[in-house]
């Protein structure tokens, strides 16, 4: 199947976008921005997949990554010590290790790209990518996909149960706290309260 020059141009632009956005992930100073640069990078890759006739996987990439990055940004901001991710912060650390890991990964991938022989396997005419993907997933590989699906579903239900108002240890408004290890003891699994922060009030006594 011949492709037009526009496909080549689009591929190059998208590839540059993916790489530049990926680089920006590490150069920006905020977790939210980093997540969304990563999202831009993934969207560019998704569009490249669409150019490669993987129409379903490419589009699925868009919405999977949109939700994923949104949740990631939200959780990072929620649990990191940065009010709403608005104060600038350093996004890279452990420099030496990451430089080595990055260089090694780059050389391995580059070597694979240069030295492996890719099959020249043009798309058969009249290929329906969605249908063939469906047959692949629900044909021979059905067992794998279904078991993965059940595991994910169970995880989702578990998360919803744990985070719902009527949580594992009672209603959230009434302060859901796990029971003590011995009857009447301090709640189990809570972080040890240091002496340095003794200034403000605590709900429970301990010494």
């Amino acid at each position: 199947m011949e492709h037009s020059i526009f496909v080549d141009i689009a591929f190059l632009l998208l590839a540059v976008l993916a790489v530049v956005a990926g680089w920006r992930v590490f150069r920006t100073d905020s977790m939210v921005r980093a997540s969304f640069f990563l999202l831009v990078s993934f969207i560019a890759v998704g569009a490249i997949m669409m150019l490669l006739a993987a129409e379903y996987l490419g589009v699925a990439m868009f919405f999977m990554m949109a939700v994923e990055m949104m949740v990631m940004a939200l959780f990072m901001v929620m649990f990191m010590m940065n009010p709403a991710g608005l104060n600038p912060m350093m996004m890279v650390h452990q420099h030496r290790l990451s430089i080595i890991a990055g260089a090694v990964a780059f050389f391995i991938l580059a070597a694979m790209a240069l030295f492996s022989s890719f099959p020249a396997d043009p798309l058969p005419a009249g290929l329906d990518p969605v249908r063939s993907l469906g047959h692949e997933m629900l044909g021979d590989s059905m067992l794998i996909f279904e078991s993965a699906g059940i595991v994910l579903l169970a995880t989702m239900i578990g998360v919803v149960v744990l985070s719902s108002h009527r949580g594992r240890y009672g209603a959230a408004e009434e302060g859901s706290v796990p029971p003590g290890l011995e009857p009447g003891g301090d709640p189990a699994g809570q972080p040890e309260k240091g002496e340095s922060e003794g200034g403000h009030e605590h709900h429970h006594h301990h010494h």
Binding site: V77, E173, S176
Partner: peptide
């Protein structure tokens, strides 16, 4: 409410 301490 739920012991899920977020940034204030």
């Amino acid at each position: 409410r739920d012991g899920l301490t977020l940034d204030s």
